[in-house]
Nucleic acid binder design. Structure first.
Length: 279
DNA sequence: AAGCTTTGACCTATA
DNA sequence: TTATAGGTCAAAGCT
């Protein structure tokens, strides 16, 4: 993350509000190329005013940033690094928005410095569970990976897991997913911590199809989540956010109602499932 | 029975 | 050329 600025991070995050509310960054937003071709790891972030100074992303950088200082929307906790998505507050109450963006700690000389990787963490879980407040907790929760993934990273698309691997770059295993839509080359890599939290989601390639309808829940993808928290590796991905990541108000409302109805039932199923595993 | 995840082996890119 | 790491394949097992 050494060369990735906060604005890179925001711009690439696919967070809807940055497209809808460009004033958030003082009018700055990533230039759109329109190439449509997926870029993989070679993609570099565009030159940005505040991206050239530091090797790492620090909160002092944040605080020094005129972009952030001028923004009344974002308040970053110097102690937790929590980044509340208050930009949503205009139309919806997202105080229960469970995600947190963080930069990954990285070696200063890491060769992957130019690679854009962003961490997505379950803030709510941390806030509710004291164990999560302890850095480096070795708490182990035996939860099948597919369960964790579908719970936290469902973006409305169908994903098929085709591999999992422990990579050296991170202590957490990576799960590899392909879009199940025919001829769609979109993939995503989900990094999951030992306690079940998703620590990183990387999107590769773009969907060449619209998002499937919500009316019927896809098997294996049991929850519909607002994907505003999901980050993409390529700028093309955020460019395609009109297809991939934007939810209309109507969709959000229907999502909420469906989610509310479904949640309890799903919780029960999961509890039963975990019980069975424990036996 | 179908569709899914798991996981070790294999492939490929890079230093 | 070789070693290493990341990504993918595919058979097996599970739900």
């Amino acid at each position: 993350m050494s060369s990735t600025s906060f604005t890179d991070l925001l711009a690439s995050s696919g967070v809807d509000c940055y497209e809808q509310n460009e004033d958030f960054l003082g009018g700055f937003y990533p230039e759109r190329t329109g190439s449509g071709l997926p870029k993989f790891k070679t993609a570099q972030p565009p030159p940005l005013p505040i991206s050239q100074a530091s090797h790492g992303f620090s909160f002092s950088d944040l605080l020094d940033s005129p972009l952030l200082l001028s923004s009344s929307h974002s308040l970053i906790s110097p102690t937790t690094g929590a980044f509340p998505y208050q930009c949503f507050n205009g139309t919806n109450n997202h105080s229960d928005f469970p995600w947190q963006l963080q930069t990954q700690p990285q070696q200063p000389n890491a060769s992957s410095a130019l690679q854009e990787t962003y961490a997505v963490q379950d803030l709510q879980k941390k806030q509710e569970d004291p164990v999560h407040r302890e850095f480096g907790s070795d708490r182990q929760v035996k939860v099948p990976s597919y369960m964790v993934v579908s719970r936290n990273s469902n973006d409305g698309y169908g994903w098929k897991k085709y591999g999992q691997k422990q990579v050296k770059k991170s202590e957490n295993p990576r799960s590899y997913f392909k879009c199940t839509y025919p001829n769609c080359v979109s993939k995503k890599i989900v990094e999951t911590a030992s306690d079940g939290q998703i620590t990183e989601i990387i999107y590769k390639g773009s969907h060449n199809h619209p998002k499937p309808e919500f009316t019927k829940r896809p098997s294996g993808s049991r929850r519909m989540f607002n994907t505003s928290s999901v980050v993409s590796e390529t700028h093309e991905q955020s460019e395609n956010s009109s297809i991939s990541f934007e939810y209309s108000d109507l969709e959000q409302k229907s999502f909420k109602s469906e989610y509310g109805e479904v949640e309890e039932e799903e919780e029960q199923l999961e509890i039963k499932r975990l019980k069975r595993e424990g036996e």
